[in-house]
Amino acid sequence: MSAIKTGLGERLVSASTEAAAFKQLPIVSLARLDGSLDERKALAAEIQDAATKIGFMYISDHGVSQDVIEAAFDQAKEFFALPDDKKMRARDAESFRGYAPLKGENVDPANRGDVHEAWDMGDDSQVMKEGAEHGNMWPSAEDLPNFKPTLQKTWDEIMALGKRLFPLFALALGLDEHYFDEKLRRPGHTMRVLYYPPQYGEIDARELGIGAHTDYECFTLLLQHGDIQALQVLNAAGEWVLAPPVPGTFVLNIADMLQRMSNGLFRSTVHRAINRSGVARYSLPFFFGLDYDAEVAVLPSCVTSERPAQYEPIKAGAYVEQRLSETYIKVDPTQEAQVAA
Rank of each mutant, 00 (worst) to 15 (best):
K5E: 15
L8F: 08
E10K: 15
L12S: 15
A15D: 15
S16Y: 14
E18Q: 15
A19M: 01
A19P: 09
A21C: 12
G35M: 10
E39Q: 15
R40T: 02
A42L: 12
E46V: 08
D49A: 12
I54Y: 09
G55E: 04
M57Q: 03
G63R: 00
G63K: 00
S65W: 06
S65E: 15
Q66D: 11
D67H: 11
I69T: 13
A76E: 10
A76K: 09
D84V: 11
R91D: 06
A93L: 09
R97P: 13
G98S: 09
A100D: 11
P101K: 05
E105W: 01
N106D: 02
R112E: 10
D114E: 08
A118N: 11
M121D: 02
G122V: 10
D123G: 09
S125Y: 04
M128P: 07
E133P: 06
N136K: 09
M137R: 15
P139N: 11
S140C: 05
A141N: 07
E142P: 00
D143P: 05
L144W: 01
N146K: 11
K148Y: 10
L151T: 04
L151V: 12
Q152R: 12
K153D: 06
W155S: 07
E157N: 00
I158L: 07
L161S: 05
L165A: 00
L171M: 12
A172T: 01
A172C: 03
A172H: 09
G174C: 10
L175W: 06
E177R: 09
H178C: 11
F180D: 02
F180S: 02
D181W: 01
K183L: 03
K183A: 03
L184K: 00
R186N: 04
P187A: 04
G188R: 06
H189N: 14
H189P: 07
T190W: 07
Y195H: 15
P197S: 10
P198R: 14
Q199S: 14
Y200Q: 00
D204R: 07
A205F: 04
G211P: 06
D215G: 11
D215S: 02
F219C: 00
L221C: 01
L223T: 05
H225P: 11
Q229P: 03
L231P: 11
Q232W: 08
Q232H: 04
G238A: 13
G238V: 14
W240T: 03
V241F: 09
L242Y: 13
V246C: 10
F250P: 03
N253A: 04
A255E: 04
D256A: 05
M257I: 08
Q259G: 06
M261Q: 12
S268Y: 07
T269E: 01
A273R: 04
I274F: 09
G278Y: 12
R281G: 01
P285Y: 01
F286H: 08
G289M: 06
L290D: 06
D291R: 09
D293A: 00
A294Y: 02
A294D: 03
C302K: 06
V303H: 07
S305D: 14
S305E: 15
S305G: 12
S305C: 00
E306Q: 08
E312D: 13
P313Y: 12
P313W: 10
K315L: 15
Y319A: 06
Y319M: 10
V320W: 01
S325Y: 01
E326N: 15
T327C: 07
A337K: 14
V339D: 07
